[in-house]
Amino acid sequence: MSFQEQRIAFTTIVVKEVRRFTRIWLQTLLPPAITIALYFVIFGTLIGPRIGEMSGFSYIEFVVPGLIMMSVITNSYSNVVSSFYGTKFQRSVEELLVSPVPNYIILTGYVVGGVARGLAVGLIVTCLSLFFTDLQVSHVVITVAIVFLTAVLFSLAGFINAVYANSFDDISIVPTFVLTPLTYLGGVFYSISMLPEFWQGVSQANPILYMVNTFRYGLLGVSDINVAWAFTMVIGFCILLYSYSLYLLGHAKKLRN
């Protein structure tokens, strides 16, 4: 395919993906907004003042970056895993496989769809947070870069989950039993400096800790971890998962047998 044709195919996939999650906004955009708003009310307004300051900020200020990041992670992941598994389940993935679209365009199209939903929900949550606290942005570039890279990373992870999934159960196992615990234990609600030394060490094996703390550093200017190391790790994982996803798209027998 020529560059122009590839551009058209890529735009087609992205438009289809964005149209999908906006068409079913009651399932994709509204629930996370309500859930996170409840977090703001309960942890920020009701319980937060009793907790007091954390890392030098009020609890609502501390928890907002974590909750925004949590919604980005969950939504970018679930968009790609449900969309791509849906195309497998209905066999409409064959529309793409019989077409001349290169695999990297297919993958990038789905990832951009996941990033779009992750960022859309992140933006909605950010706007909601303004009803509860004033947001400051200490490092704009770091804030934008980490949220974008995180959305890319979890879109890729969702894609891999979708390729391997054989049933709808398989696409909910990872978010329920892996993603949610890692997110909750990834410093969304607390600073790991509050933990005993042993558990601080254990927490540092959780990749989500690095993304949440880097985003918090971008907004508040405080972090439990080294931001440069966090970027290196996220970019490294993105490259690794993108390469593996491309391999799966070309060779996975679950797609082409």
Binding site: Q6, I8, T12, K16, R19, S92, E95, P100
Partner: peptide, 23 residues
């Protein structure tokens, strides 16, 4: 076997396939 998205509109299904071929 039918292999299109059952929730998409008829027009969109054909139009999208045209896009996959770079039209």
């Amino acid at each position: 076997e039918f292999n299109f998205n059952q929730f998409e509109k008829v027009f969109d299904i054909v139009r999208t396939q045209a896009g996959y071929f770079g039209l």
